[in-house]
Each structure stands twice: as structure tokens, then as C-alpha cells.
Design a protein around this nucleic acid. Structure first.
Lengths: 197, 197
DNA sequence: GTCTATATTCGGATAGAC
DNA sequence: GTCTATCCGAATATAGAC
């Protein structure tokens, strides 16, 4: 858990506690069904303390959103630099998405459920965010290199990552059980078959 | 437009006006950013009139949800009865999803964005609803018949419909332009390749 | 069945002591 | 930097005339 921006978390500092609590409540009950009073209660803090760290409820959501996206972007860059073929890169991305869902389901739910437009109207939606742009870029490059069939890059990205993302949604909604990483072989097989040249 | 439950819509009755207006505002600004006063204003009605037809804001959302799901279920049943092979059925479903998005984007957005859990906590989520169950059933049958590879039915359904659904999301978020039906050939080709035996 | 006016609750945000 | 008490606006919902 690394929400602390400047200070090293010797122990869990207040800011981090607030963010973790908010993340849990936001994904559990939704942003609008979560009041600052709820966060206060669950985090064992006072209202004043929360407003000392954040200007308002939306600032908490914004901070969460940015922190999580940035963390994801770093992982994506790592993947891009440690694999050469489009096949390997995209497979690593799918693997990352599945394992992140297993390890930090709330974080994934928060980013994916894409309700952001509803309560963060001024933020760029997930689909236009850095990680997603990187995914699209990988696919485009794969088309140029001939690894992937000639398709609209967006369409190709949608079909390749759409399956895994759909499974993640099903898992987060409680429909599909079990650790998702176990499904990597079969689902990646399907995903790659759908677009490979 | 067929939201009227009992009465034939000689002209647009008040109930229908309310539902149409609410649907537009809910998808445009979100459920929680839409007040009953907003609906009142946009529908050129009075608060009292709205509360005469619905017990509260959540009842409006619930009515919308049920009406839209039922409409979709009927279409799905029609498809199931007019096609025999799994291939044709599933392709027809994808085609339907794409054309529905083109024709009634707000309706699709309302159902898909799956924020329902946030404001309709007691309703079954889309993924467990009738239409989705039917989709899953089609896939399972396809596996038994040998048209589709041996896979977990849920996984197979996720990869086959995940691509199209992802593209729909991208379209509704303004990332992917143009009529979606035009993409049917290419996206269905991909989808079927991913799971066909 | 449609309207206006009003009641009531709730939640975001602030003030200011410690 | 943490707390309590409080304010204020907004939004749901109701009452009751027409």
C-alpha cells in the first residue's frame, strides 16, 4: 500500500488511512452513498482531521484516482521495457490486470467501474488515461509489425483486452469465483487467437 | 418508445415523459447528479405530478431498469427462436447489441454502465439478469454441440462478448466514433475466432 | 391528476478550542 | 494536527388547494 506521496510510511500515516478507508467505502457502497461522516467513523478520525488533509470529498476521490493510475502506468512501462514482442507485452498486461484484481480488488473496481465521469467530471476517463493509451499503442505497433491482423487499432485493442476485462467485471460483481490468474492461459489463448495475424 | 405499461400511448402520456426525461438526465449527468427538480424542469412538469406517478426517484430508476431489461429479453428470445446454430445466434446477439447502441445510446448506457448496484442495491445486477443468462446459455449449448471449444462457459461468454461490449463502452464514452453496426463484420470475426472449435 | 408551497432530513464544509 | 460543535444549502418528499 503506497499512497503516501512525500513521506515514507513509517507507520500508516493519517492521509493513507483516509485514502484506504475511502477506497473501501467507495467501492463497497459507492461514492455518493459514502459521506465524509462515514469515512470519519470507519477511519476512527474526526471530520476536522479529514478536512485538514483534503479540501473536500471529491479531492479524496481525485487523489485516489491519480495515485492508482500512476501506479498502473509504472507497471505498464515496466512491461513495455522488459518484453520485445507485442505478443509478450500484451500477455504480460493481461496477466497484470488479472493479478492486480486478485490482489487489490477494490483498487481495480474503483478504476474500472468508470463511474468516474459521474463524480469526477473534470478528469479524463479511464479509457483515455495513460495506461489505456499505452495498451492501444502496443496493439498499433503489433499491427505495423505484422503480428496482429490489419484492423482498426481501437477495435483490435477492444477485442483483445475486452475479454479479460469482462471477466474481471464478472469477478468483481461476484459472478465468477476464484483467483483470476488461474484463467490466464485459457483466456490469453482466446484473446490472442482473436487478433493474431 | 414503449414505456407505457397499461395504457396505449395515444400521445406521450405523463409517465412516459417522466421516464424518457429521467433516462436522458441519468445517463447524461448520472443518477446522483440528477435531482427530481431537474426532471421536473426538463419534463415541463411539476414535482407533485412526478410524485403522483412514482413513489420516489429510485422508483423511477427501477421502472426504467425493468422496462429496458424486459425489452432486451424479448429481443433475445426472438433471436434464440429464429436461429439454430450457436454461431448464428451469438452473431445476432452481437449485432443486436451494436445496433441498439446506435439507436438508443442512453438506454444502453443506462443498462451497461452498471452503476445500478450503487443506486439500486436490491436489484439483480445486469450480469445476473435474464438477457445475460440467456447469452451464457447459448454459449454453454455451443460447447456441448462442439461448435465452441471446451472452456469454462463463463470464460467463453466473457471473451466472445467482451470485445463487442468493450467497443460499446468506448463508443459511449466518446472514444470510438461512428455507427457501431459497421464494425459488425470485423468484430464478429474476431469474437468468433477467439472461441470457435 | 396537476399544481405550489413547505417541511424535514442529510451531508458537505467551516470555525475555532485545544 | 486533531478535535467538537455548528452552519448552511440542497434535495427528497409531503400537504393540500385547484
Amino acid at each position: 500500500m503506497s499512497y503516501s506521496s512525500g513521506t515514507p510510511d513509517k507507520k500508516a500515516d493519517t492521509r493513507t488511512v483516509i485514502l484506504n478507508t475511502a477506497l473501501r467505502l467507495f467501492t463497497q457502497n459507492g461514492y455518493f452513498n459514502t459521506s465524509v461522516h462515514d469515512i470519519k467513523r470507519e477511519a476512527h478520525l474526526s471530520i476536522g482531521s479529514i478536512y485538514h488533509y483534503f479540501k473536500g470529498k471529491d479531492e479524496i476521490a481525485k487523489a485516489l484516482y491519480h495515485d492508482l493510475l500512476e501506479e498502473m502506468e509504472q507497471q505498464f512501462n515496466l512491461i513495455a521495457s522488459s518484453h520485445s514482442s507485442t505478443h509478450d507485452r500484451c500477455k504480460a498486461v493481461v496477466s497484470l490486470l488479472l493479478s492486480m484484481t486478485d490482489e487489490k480488488p477494490e483498487a481495480m473496481a474503483f478504476m474500472l467501474h468508470a463511474k468516474h465521469r459521474e463524480f469526477l467530471p473534470n478528469e479524463t476517463p479511464v479509457c483515455s488515461s495513460k495506461p489505456f493509451t499505452l495498451m492501444k499503442g502496443m496493439v498499433r505497433e503489433g499491427i505495423e509489425k505484422g503480428e496482429i491482423r490489419e484492423l482498426d487499432p481501437l477495435v483490435a485493442a477492444a477485442v483483445m483486452f475486452g475479454g479479460p476485462i469482462r471477466l474481471i467485471h464478472l469477478h468483481l460483481d461476484g459472478i465468477f469465483a476464484g483467483p483470476l490468474v488461474r484463467q490466464l492461459p485459457s483466456i490469453w489463448d482466446c484473446a490472442w487467437k482473436s487478433v493474431s495475424a
